[in-house]
Design a protein around this nucleic acid. Structure first.
Lengths: 136, 136
DNA sequence: TTTCTTGCAAATTGTTTGCAGTTTT
DNA sequence: AAAACTGCAAACAATTTGCAAGAAA
């Protein structure tokens, strides 16, 4: 079974604080790919004390550096975050802006396609398009 | 043979100004994927009059909207620009930050991989990794 | 108790906008 | 001449940073 947020932070060697715990839990439990502000809004009510925007940013950077979460770049100027750290990809519905995870297994493996000169550590595919209604 | 910047702007219905022409030429002639500031620095000397940062941004947005250039999102917080509007992809050398164009033909076509529910308009693959020395 | 984190406010960085004057069609 | 563009400065938006007080190892 999958790890709890607490176990994950311990495993990744991140010092535990209630802010980090709640932000990690929030990201693990959503399928959205929220921005820092959306995380702040979604998490604030779960904490007894006020959470500052600076702490959200600091925490997100810490979690990214520790490999607990990932940044998602789908639009200019704003960074989104994703607790899914498995190799995976994204589909952006251009009408709604909704971002849907695409598991690695849905695509052919293209890691080797570039040849030996390129040592690929990771890659991400971003699709832009329309979603048929019944998928929304 | 390929179009000149002037021909391209005409074809795309963009009103001609010396700023737009020079910015388009600059992007067509480089293999880099410069930011707005890098474009400003690289282009300023080619114009008899000073070029303002606001005009660079306005121009880039106009050119993106007209389909003359594309935005490239490889790192958080900053937008890069690319005059290559063919469907293609990018390799980011994690050490130097250098971005290399990967032509569509180097990869298998994955547009149809998601199935009918997803009407894919376009997609872009971003690879992160190391480049062997002789490729630098 | 030592080290690291949080919160606040101020600072930075990237980008957009309002408006007067200039250029393109 | 009409419509659109440029430059400047001010406005915004996203993110980072310095420092004092507080919490985790």
């Amino acid at each position: 079974m999958s790890l709890t947020a607490k176990e994950l932070l311990t495993k990744k060697g991140v010092k535990m604080t209630s802010q980090r715990l709640v932000i990690t839990e929030y990201l693990m439990q959503t399928l959205e790919h929220p921005t820092a502000d959306e995380i702040l809004a979604g998490v604030a009510e779960m904490l007894p004390v006020p959470l500052s925007r600076a702490t959200v940013y600091n925490t997100l950077n810490t979690l990214v550096d520790a490999g607990v979460i990932r940044e998602v770049l789908t639009e200019p100027g704003r960074t989104r975050y994703d607790a899914n750290t498995f190799e995976h990809h994204h589909f952006v519905d251009v009408k709604s802006g909704k971002i849907i995870d695409i598991p690695q297994e849905m695509l052919p493996d293209i890691e080797k396609a570039l040849g030996d000169k390129f040592k690929v550590h990771s890659y991400t595919v971003t699709f832009y398009g329309d979603l048929e209604d019944d998928k929304k």
